[in-house]
Amino acid sequence: MIEAENIEDQNGLRPDGRRALELRQIRVKMGVFGQADGSAYIEQGNTKILVTVYGPHQPRGSTGRSTSNITKGIVNCQYSMAVFSLSSGERKRKPRGDRKSQERSLQLKHAMEAIIHLEIYPRSQIDIYVEALQVDGSEYCASVNAATLALIDAGIPIKNYAIGCTVTLINNPSLEDEDNTLGKGVLDANYVEECTPGVTLSVVSLPNNDSTSKDGLIVVAQGAGQRLHLSQFESLKARVLCGCQDIRTILDYAVREYLTEQSLPSLFHVALN
């Protein structure tokens, strides 16, 4: 169990020494697999996610049969957590198929359907396989970020980056009179912070790339933990969108670097034609 003094903050800092609006270090690698159409690996602190994308291809199996909509493509998402992914030392019995993974798969599908231009792939299927290698909080949001990068690597046209970020309202009464910054919600919570009494919101948004308008379009939001009072929601939303904007900047930089490093000769070829 987590002891009480671990959660207590020191000088307005969080247990791992971050400030309220500070993200964990994000490391990104795109194109990690050869045989998949697109792949990406992301580390957000100790949360490590690997995503591969196959397609678009002809639908196979039951996913194609059940569809009645033939004018649009199908997105098939599979979220699985590796049996060794849990940080507490215990092993997961099944990597996928449990309720949590199925729910994650469905929510990931909603997020991906919102950004992919499905109308240009009629009667086709796009497979997105997410593997959580190590779990340390915010794994759903990290997998959305990784899936976006994998789609970019696969060359599948998307409307915008889908960026996931969590905000956690740490419900600690001692904080509120001393320092109000932590009491209004912290970004990108790790596992210890997600376990604190309080509410965690996972938000996937499409942030605008111009810094003038701060808000973006929210696609998926899920809450976990206790109930949230509506009066606190607006400030949490503003914070989480700010976090999404920051993550977007990091991913944007990574994509541009990947483009220039990996494929500049071939891009020259296109540009000169």
Binding site: I152, I158, N209, V255, T260
Partner: peptide, 11 residues
């Protein structure tokens, strides 16, 4: 010029 762009970038 070669202009690199990313998805969702306003052109």
């Amino acid at each position: 010029d070669i202009i690199v762009c990313v998805p969702g970038q306003r052109l």
